[in-house]
Amino acid sequence: MAFIKKTATPIHCTEHDERHTERDFADLVAELGAENETARRWAVRDLTPLPDASQPLVARLAYEESASVRAAILNALAQIGDHAAIAGLIHCLRSEDAGLRNEAIEVLKAIPQHVEPVIHTLLNDSDSDVRIFAVNILESLRHKDVEKWLIEVIEKDPHINVCATAVDLLSEVGTERALPALKQLKIRFEDDPYICFTTDLALKRIEDGSQ
């Protein structure tokens, strides 16, 4: 069982922000439920390098109310980056808590190497909000297929807001390859003023950029 050395503390500790005991994995998991916020934050920090830390951290995230502890857990999950950690971060996209959703999006944007394998699944999720968040995450992915995925979204996704979000990003990263799909989208949603507005903008930016 893993063991944490008290001396391995890379950050400054205040009098009230110190470990009181040396703890093993089970102790740290128990400490995630401590009443004291600082104790919970320490538990997150000390759990992070240990094997199998993701699952208890994800479990705690579901009902952690402290913003600082929540941020610590999200950052820990991003740092761990294993299957359970990424699944936990993605699960946050379905949260009723807008703050948690946005924090998860920002964390996922920062770890494109871990998101890349699951992005296609997210873009085809049954929940349109999750698909919108997936498009938001694409913004930072810097992957060679980003444009291709965005084109697929505006060609196939039935939800107007998912398409609108994809067009916004295409206007920044799109090339001439996106022009036919953008023109087709404008026809598909010809009665919607926002789609017409944003599509015209994207078409103009791409066409101007290609000249």
């Binding site: 807008a98 703050g99 959703r101 946005n102 999006i105 920002e106 968040f133 938001n136």
Partner: peptide, 11 residues
């Protein structure tokens, strides 16, 4: 808007 980085619409 609701979903925004740093501080969302509710916040």
């Amino acid at each position: 808007d609701v979903n925004m980085p740093k501080l969302d619409g509710y916040g």
